[in-house]
Nucleic acid binder design. Sequence first.
RNA 1: GGGGCGGUAGUUAAGUCGGUUAUAACGUCGGCCUGUCACGCCGAAGGUCGCGGGUUCGAGUCCCGUCCGCCCCGCCA
Length: 654
Amino acid sequence: MVASASEPKTRLAPVTAPCAARDGRPCEPGEFCLHCGDMPTLLEIGRTHTCGDLRLSDEGERAVLFGWVNSRRDHGGRIFVDLRDREGMTQVVFGPDVDADAYEAAQALRSEHCIGVCGKILRRVDNDGTPNANPNMATGEIELEVDVFELFSKAETPPFDISKDERLDTHENLRLQYRYLDLRRPSLQRNFILRSRLGTITRAHMSELGFLELETPYMVKYTPGGARNFLVPSRLNPGCFYALAESPQIFKQLFMVSGFDKYFQITRCFRDEDLRNDRQPEFTQIDVELSFATPELVFEAIESLMIRLWKDLLGVEIPTPFRRLTWAQAMARYGSDKPDTRFGLELSDLTALTRGCGFAVFEGAPYVKGLCLPPEHGPGYGRGKIDKLTAFAKKRESGGAKGLAWARVEDGGIWQGGSAKFISAELQTKISAEMGAEPGSLLLFVADDFETTHTVLNAIRLHLRDELGLLAGSGPTPWNFLWVTDFPLFERNRDGNWVSSHHPFTSPRDEHVELLSSDPGKVLARAYDLVLNGNEIGGGSIRIHQADVQAKVFEALGMSEAEKQAKFGFLLDAFKYGPPPHGGIALGVDRLSMLMSEADSLRDVIAFPKTQKGQDLMTQCPTPADEPQLAELFIRHRALPNEAAGQAPDAGET
RNA sequence: GGGGCGGUAGUUAAGUCGGUUAUAACGUCGGCCUGUCACGCCGAAGGUCGCGGGUUCGAGUCCCGUCCGCCCCGCCA
């Protein structure tokens, strides 16, 4: 039987099985029914199950399924179709002996046609009646024998294979151009289902903790500093622009002044900076702020949320409290403020030991640090590999070391090869002991300034992690959560001026307030990052709520009175009216989703992502604005970089 | 702004030292097939080698430029 809304309704032959559309209860006069009323369309009957639902226990029932043709296998006399929806896949089978019309219609089925089917749920058997389940499918023990078929719509041959693609090995530009098809892939659908549940659980959990979900504007006042903003011209205010919010930071602090006490929001943020594998121009944060906050209160709330997310979404119990390192410890031991703590290879500080050692490379550097490759890897790491590693260490993107000193450790901590001839036997033994070296260990050293030494050793450490597969074989992914605390309040920018590491409202540690004027570089902040397996997934701080401390911070930043007023006047005014002590954090939903779904890229957890050039290949966005649009906004565009060359612009710039 | 990798049939890839008609798999189309599930068998069609220029008797291959995608640095919490 072929049902269609556009064709006259016909009666179905009576069936003896209970009617799925009625949950087995008797049919009532006037109701649509497969066996006692007019033939309704399958849409009118409605879907009874998803394609992931049916099991052997449903055998003998009738079901209505809607979905897309994943694949079709025509045996001439029996046509098998794997029907797919977001919940799974079910084999449906057509035969001339079951329903000739449906069988005939199924001949024309092709990949990605959208169809509805109704029929009886049968156990899968061979021709001789022996069970013939497909163990690779959740629904593999059953199939649906179709006696009513409806074609909702045909599909052209898709530009790439959706059906058996769990590897996502199509060129990404094509995937993005046909994103709506790309998103049909089960692997991507899983990511988005997880992401949806992440949002639901977060809302439930934060609400249960007493946090209010409040909204803040996306179109906000432009404030210089920090990330570059996207600008939005204001038609009603000629010549003026909104900025798209890089975060709700200031507004959530104002919520605290307003007395909302505990706030959260799952919100979009916008930053006009260059893209990366884990950075998109618009991204989503779980934004949290609470009054009368201490770091402990923030950690507690977030840890409880993480526990729940991992338990509910992954079935994983993560241990709490999370490990903590100060920024100084993280840098010293791992060379990174977001260390991957799933494996060892910690750094050793050899600066003091090597003072006066006579080896110019070590003596001339403010920092001498190293890491020790243990014996199980050391001997296999030959001269060729060391040379490659040296080249890697020298590359600019690895931090740009001047060189990589090395040595092999023999019995008694004595070295051989590399730097051995430059270091006395006595010192060799001491350094070997300091680094925990054993016979067979390979020692690697970098001697340079603070930044280069740590950047390079961190790069080497992560390189060795991947090269030697240090994470492999340890079973399911260990989830190493880590709080990194006590960041420096300031760092120097390129011009040598102090800028906020976090943002200018971050509170210094109480005992460091005096240093604000005397030695700003030594001031530590009450700021913290949440790190997971080497990824920064959140960051926050306790904020300044005392006017005098805020004034000192602005002063250290070299901000004039007029500048403060112009940039943050409204916030400073607000803080005149009894601001509570407060603090908070923001978590990256995209990165969390990526890590939890073990996706390779942020683009696999963002439905409609931008390319590295910030374009949407599906909609061909952004586009130039036409003259009338610009005129209305009092905007005239300048010559574009490529207009001089006589080429058409590929993107609009104003 | 810089460094690296990639772009060949609808898709994914191969293509040697520059040399005859640019290969394969999957997909598509036609035929056959009642138990497949990456179904199978037979047959066919399908190419602006990203684009532009140059070198050469001859360019997918070499050179220059350019566009697009990805990874990274700078930038960015």
